[in-house]
Amino acid sequence: MTTRRDFIKMAGLTSAAMMVNPVDAFSNSIEKEKPEKENKWLDGSRLVVSVSMQFETGGQPENAESPFPQNMQKGYVDLPAETWYQYGYKEGIPRMLDNWDKHGIKVTSHMVGSAVLQNPQLAKEIVQRGHEAAAHGMNWSSQYAMSYEEEKTFIKAGADAVKSITGFTPVGYNANWLRRGQNTIKILQELGFTYHIDDLSRDEPFIIQANKKDFVVVPYTIRCNDIVLIEGKNFSSDQFFNQVKAEFDQLYAESEFKRRQMSISFHDRIGGTPQMVKTTSDLLDYMKKHTGVTFKRKDEIAKMTLQDKSSIRE
C-alpha cells in the first residue's frame, strides 16, 4: 500500500534521480514502491481509540434544546425537558461508568463547571474510577463572543470548579459545541492547559504553537457522536453501530502504515441510555478483537504526542 505521503516523497526522489540516470531511477522507484511497515505510535499501539463522555447536565440554560418541540411561550419553563437533562446524572453517567469498567477502558470526561458544582459526588466518582476530568467551560455561554479578559475568567472558573470538586487539574479543553474564539488557544496555554479538542481537521493528533510554545490538538468528532447522530439525525442504535464500525474498519486498515486516532463521543443524557450503552458495549467488543488497538484518555494522547519527535507540526 502506497500512501500519499510516500508517493510525494518517492516522486521527489525519483525526479531528482532521473536527472542523473533515468533507467536506474525507474528501477529503484519500483523496488521502493511498498513502504516499510513502521510503528506510528510511540507506545507500540497500532490504532488509538479515544472516548469522550460529556458531563453537562446542570450547565444548560433554561429551555435548552431537547427532543421536545421548541415552542414554549416566553416566561415559562419546559419542565419535561429539564427531566431529560437530569437523566444524564441520575442514570446516564452511572451506567456508562459501569460499562467502561466492564471493558477495562478509561475515558475523558469533559465537565461543565456548573454541572460539576450541582453534582459533586458524581464528578468525584468519575475521577476516582480512573477517568480524566477535562474542562468544558463554566456553562453553555458562547466563548467566541467574549472579550479576552471575559473568556479567560470564564475558562478559569470552569477549570477551577472541576479541580475544587474532583482534585483533578484539567489539562484539556472543549468549548461549548466546539465554538472557540480567536483568543481561546492563547488563553488555554496561559492557564496551563496542554491540549484542546475543538478541531476536526485530522485523524491523528498534532502540535501547534501557542504563545511560541508547543500545544497539542487531539481531534474531536462529529461523525461518531451521539448528539449529532442519535439526537440530531434520529439514528437508531443499530445505525449508530454501523456508522462507528465503518469508521473503525477504515482507520484500522490505514493504521497499518500511518498514525491513526479514532474518536467517539457520548453525552450524559444520550449515550447513557440502555440501548446506547448496549450498542457501545458491542462496539467495544468488536474493536478489542483487533490486534494493536488501545483505548486512551486524551491527556495520555497529548503527552505521547509531545514526546514523539515524529508528531505532525503545524
Score class of each variant (00 low, 15 high):
Y173R: 02
P219R: 04
A210E: 08
L200W: 14
D214S: 14
P219K: 07
I185D: 13
R129A: 04
I222R: 09
K213N: 15
T221A: 09
M138V: 07
I227A: 13
A210Y: 08
Y144F: 13
W140M: 15
F154N: 04
V217F: 01
V218Q: 03
N176W: 12
H196V: 04
F215Q: 10
K163E: 15
H131L: 05
V162R: 02
V218K: 02
K156A: 14
E190S: 09
I155F: 02
I207E: 12
K152T: 05
M146H: 05
G172H: 03
N225G: 03
Y220E: 09
V228I: 15
I197E: 11
G192M: 10
Q143E: 15
K186G: 02
A210K: 04
I187A: 03
E190I: 01
A157H: 05
H196M: 06
N225T: 01
T153P: 00
C224L: 06
E204K: 15
K152R: 10
N183F: 08
T153Y: 02
Y173E: 02
A157I: 00
I222Q: 10
D160V: 14
G172K: 03
P170F: 07
N174M: 12
Y173I: 03
V162F: 05
A145Q: 06
K152C: 01
V218N: 06
K152M: 10
I155W: 03
N211E: 12
D198L: 01
Y144T: 11
G181S: 07
H131T: 05
